[in-house]
């Protein structure tokens, strides 16, 4: 249950920051009204990002089994999530433009903002993740170096 709670927290924060970054990005490009559409982008993001909740639950569940510290686990989740985010936008680009890549500015910006949102969200949730990890993780094994 704790895993689901943490995952939902990470996921909701990611979508919130993503919507906020979208709005700011729109404003930077000169579309000031994007800022006011942040709540709608947020609602749209919740619907479109549902598969990512499942992914986040799976990743948090898997990471809590690793014999690593919370910071190591958070880094691991951040990178794997980023890969999936890039894959998601590449797939969208394939459906829209028939090219499986991030070859245009919009796709690159969207990927960048979502990854930044995800990392920020993970950073904010690191404490609850660490508390959960300390309770459930197997004992850390010493690294066999030198």
């Amino acid at each position: 249950m704790e895993v689901v709670k943490i995952s939902v927290k990470i996921w909701m924060n990611t979508i919130f920051f993503n919507a906020l970054f979208f709005g700011i990005m729109g404003a930077v490009y000169g579309e000031i009204y994007w800022l006011f559409s942040v709540p709608f982008i947020y609602i749209g993001g919740v619907v479109a990002g549902l598969p990512f909740l499942v992914l986040t639950i799976l990743l948090v569940k898997a990471a809590s089994l690793f014999p690593y510290s919370a910071s190591g686990k958070v880094c691991w989740i951040a990178v794997i999530e980023s890969l999936f985010i890039a894959l998601f936008y590449m797939s969208v680009n394939y459906v829209v433009g028939n090219r499986f890549s991030l070859n245009n500015n919009l796709a690159q910006s969207l990927t960048g903002t979502t990854i930044a949102a995800c990392w920020l969200s993970l950073y904010i949730c690191r404490k609850s993740f660490a508390d959960h990890t300390e309770m459930s993780a197997p004992a850390n094994l010493p690294t066999d170096t030198k």
Binding site: S69, S71, G72, V74, C75, W76, A78, V79, I80
Partner: peptide, 10 residues
């Protein structure tokens, strides 16, 4: 687990 190992150091 390279990323996790790297994250351990920080």
């Amino acid at each position: 687990f390279c990323i996790a190992s790297f994250g351990e150091h920080f």
